[in-house]
Write a protein that binds this DNA or RNA. Structure first.
Length: 427
DNA sequence: TCTGGGGTCCTAGGACCC
DNA sequence: TCTGGGGTCCTAGGACCC
């Protein structure tokens, strides 16, 4: 008798994604401990398996562990999101060869909907894993289950049990075994349960996933919120969490924010920061063809240094716009008056919200304030794309040499999949 | 000396409307 | 003197994700 077909979610997760991407064009790094650092080469944001084994933790400041790490042969890289994004897109393309239902959840994870007998689904998952490794040289783990929450849990198993060959399916276990797995899983390890909720759940005597599954869903809803109730129901095998594809037109806000390599205190410098950030953030919008109806700008001192200080201001943009001139004017108007020259600001940002698609927001001609609005931004993009980033800028941003405060990325790898001039060289 | 950068969703409470 | 019962919208704050 044939096994009945079932619907399953396969969570495909790249193992140590950023470190794996760094290895693609540097095969000598396979088997060596690799860490990837945040902007400004500040702290560790990704670690290879070997680096984890050395006890290097997520978020550790690089300056604190550098001597130790280097003595153990750890290779550090500045984060190269352009490279990772490009590799991610290739992985997703491979997954789409196996299913029409691929939900890209983050740069290194996707849920893939699969249909068939448990055995067929398991074989498909193993083939996906082989293909990604063969075509890109990147290892992935895959967890298979009836709900997304359980698939996430299964993928942890796939990652940490070498005997499974990188693929773990809950269908391989009888109910008593699943119970045991859930019992061995602390609630804080579950997708959707953070430290705060874990603490409050513990106060109710709910410490592991099995206990959460068996808790009264109405109580969970009442004491916490609907999200946690859904997590609890998903543990029972009832799918109820949907992933919204992050379509451009559904994104609610776009932010550009960076830390500086050296602090900024003067209004002049902050103006320069805003000039550059206004161009960066509006360029993202133009790429997506969106316009924003509201803006907020902020700057802050270092949070780990007393006294912490943060300034911000918000303003509506009427009509909606993606024009860097308008955005810059708005950002400086709300922020600069608050700049305190006694403060050492280490970070600033511009956030645009109330987004909508460009075409739908074009005002009637008689209401359009300036027939040329919006064209300047595209012109700047075009010039910079053809003759080089930073060639043409707005206000104080048109600078041939980067200002002192721009972020530090001293160990940046080549962007070998997106820039001709940075192609890998063989020989 | 040196500590990331994005996002989303839910809830409670107030203002306001009929 | 009596003092309803909905509904919407907005905002701030809290929680979570990678």
């Amino acid at each position: 008798m044939p096994t009945p077909a079932v619907r399953r979610f396969a969570l495909v997760d790249v193992d140590s994604c950023f470190a794996a991407c760094e290895r693609i064009f540097h095969p000598d790094l396979y088997g060596r401990p690799v860490v990837v650092l945040s902007n400004n080469d500040g702290c560790v944001v990704a670690r290879s398996r070997e680096a984890k084994a050395l006890g290097i933790k997520m978020g550790m400041p690089w300056f604190q562990i550098r001597a130790f790490a280097e003595s153990r042969g750890v290779v550090a890289r500045s984060s190269n999101y352009e490279l990772y994004g490009s590799i991610s897109a290739r992985i997703m393309a491979i997954l789409r060869d196996f299913s029409a239902h691929v939900e890209v959840y983050s740069i290194d994870e996707a849920f893939v909907g699969l249909y068939g007998s448990p055995r067929e689904i398991d074989e498909t998952a193993r083939e996906m894993r082989r293909r990604v490794w063969r075509d890109l040289g990147v290892p992935v783990s895959i967890g298979i289950a009836p709900t997304r929450t359980l698939a996430k849990l299964a993928s942890h198993g796939a990652k940490h049990s070498p005997g499974l060959g990188g693929v773990a399916s809950l269908d391989c276990y009888v109910p008593a075994q699943v119970d045991a797995i859930l019992e061995a899983t602390e609630v804080s390890e579950l997708w959707g349960v953070g430290r705060r909720f874990a603490k409050r759940l513990a106060a109710l005597g709910i410490e592991n996933a099995r206990q959460l599954r068996e808790a009264d869903p109405a109580l969970i809803r009442r004491r916490f919120n609907v999200n946690l109730q859904q997590t609890a129901l998903e543990l029972r095998g009832i799918p109820c969490i949907e992933i919204e594809e992050r379509d451009v037109d559904r994104q609610h806000q776009i932010m550009y924010s960076r830390s500086f390599s050296t602090p900024v205190s003067s209004t002049t410098e902050m103006h320069q920061v805003m000039s550059i950030y206004a161009q960066k953030v509006t360029r993202r919008m133009r790429r997506q063809n969106t316009v924003a109806g509201a803006l907020w700008a902020f700057a802050s001192t270092a949070w780990y240094k007393e006294p912490f200080s943060r300034i911000f201001g918000a303003v509506a943009l009427t009509p909606r716009t993606d024009d860097p001139v308008v955005v810059l004017r708005a950002a400086t108007a709300v922020l600069l008056p608050q700049v305190d020259s006694n403060c050492a600001y280490v970070r600033a940002g511009i956030c645009l919200s109330d987004l909508s698609l460009g075409e739908t927001a074009t005002p009637l001609p008689i209401f359009a304030p300036d027939p040329n609005a919006g064209r300047l931004g595209r012109l700047i993009d075009k010039v910079n794309a053809s003759v080089g980033e930073g060639s043409l800028g707005l206000g104080l941003a048109g600078l041939a040499a980067p200002p002192d405060w721009t972020m530090k990325r001293e160990m940046l790898s080549n962007r070998g999949t997106t820039h001709w001039s940075e192609l890998a060289v063989v020989g």
